[in-house]
Design a protein around this nucleic acid. Structure first.
Lengths: 225, 225
DNA sequence: AAGCGCGGAATTGTATACAAAACGATTGAT
DNA sequence: ATCAATCGTTTTGTATACAATTCCGCGCTT
């Protein structure tokens, strides 16, 4: 990538999301500037923007670091995510048209197929599409935007994917239940099922994190000099 | 304020939140730079940060504008806010210690007094403190952070306050109900009451907005040249 | 008179230069 | 030998200069 005149921010964000730059790493302005063949000025802009969204933490005269999220914070984020997705489901149950449900059904089928094939990657993708559909049907554009933002922040920590076979099976069952609620137009149940569905992922992820972080020592800066 | 070496961002944000700079206004880099007695560089940083949080919208070669939120978007934001506060309430119901409840009771009393005195400003403040307590008891730091961010974005449109007398009365009744749920440890009811409580505010605010916006014409830029 | 194009002024975006603060390491004292 | 202070280096933060684009108004054409 020789030059990125339009949106350097996305390029940097991408490096973080893809794990090229990892949590805890310092964002070296000069190095990034060289790397992207621009001056430090636009690099700093990008860094500050990412700091404002919460993806990186900027410490005034020390530098910017990709946020390191501990298990507790991660669990908190999943709790919020669960609530937001539950809201989508609640709205979707009320607002879904028959066409929407048909489309959703197709996406659910795709999940089923991926699960049957035991293709974890395919399931991951189909799962995303299933949830995306529900979010869209929910029809709250602002909510969608917030969910996207939160997803980005979580994605940085999704490098280690949940590929456990049994999880896919239960995940699919949960989708099944959610779908039934949506078809029935039962908003409260849809919300509650969705909340559970996401929470479980969060719990599992949290467990995994906790396990992995055991042999990772705290890496850098302290609050005060 | 002759100089703001540390955090210009907050100063700018404050100008927006206090209505000194209003929705739809363009943020003139040069003017702000003069105004704060700094160069354009830090001003631009601040603007970009605010853009990333969603308070201002930055259009590449056109400038930055304080976001103008229409009634629909506002309603969406309130819906999300209601859900987030409901989550706080749900957690608070589960996690509240007796000390927490005692403190909350005192804050509730403050609301009651303000309402009895018919002091809308005092009620507004006491109300804030009541909600803040519940959020804290909820104990999800990330959630708190998100709520703060959302509040800021809404506050820019709260210049016109809800001072209706009857609203205060019903608001107080709603607080009463929420408190009972919290004391009883009924998480689901607490969440649902809180959601209703916030939603109503949103609806009323939306109505007000819709009324006011009738004689305000669209002000600026269009998507494409 | 209305629409179009052209040119100057203003504004945004980027680069570079410089000031100030933090970091690291070497040196000196106890 | 350990700790502390100081000097040089590195890195962040700010200012300024300049390039590029957009905005705005003028005059021209039809």
């Amino acid at each position: 990538m020789p030059a990125t005149p339009i949106d350097l921010r996305d390029a940097l964000e991408d490096r973080i999301l893809t794990g090229h730059i990892r949590p805890g790493d310092r964002l070296d302005e000069a190095a990034l500037a060289r790397d992207f063949s621009v001056s430090r000025t636009p690099v700093r802009q990008a860094i500050f923007q990412l700091a404002a969204t919460g993806l990186v933490e900027h410490i005034p005269r020390r530098g910017a670091f990709v946020v390191e999220i501990g298990p507790e914070r991660l669990s908190e984020m999943f709790e919020v995510m669960a609530e937001l997705e539950a809201l989508c489901a609640r709205n979707a149950a009320r607002r879904a048209l028959t066409d929407d449900l048909a489309d959703l059904g197709r996406r659910h089928d795709a999940c089923t197929e991926a699960a049957a094939a035991g293709d974890a990657d395919a399931y991951y993708y189909a799962n995303e599409r299933f949830h995306a559909a529900i979010r869209t049907i929910g029809g709250n554009a602002f909510l969608l935007q917030e969910i996207d933002r939160l997803q980005k922040r979580l994605k940085a920590f999704r490098r280690i994917q949940l590929r456990a076979r049994d999880r896919i099976t239960t995940s699919l069952e949960e989708h099944e239940r959610i779908m039934r609620c949506l078809i029935a137009g039962d908003a409260e149940s849809a919300a509650s099922e969705m909340r559970k569905h996401i929470s479980i992922q969060g719990d599992r992820f949290g467990d995994l994190m906790a396990t992995l972080s055991r042999d990772q020592k705290p890496r850098h800066y302290m609050k005060q000099a």
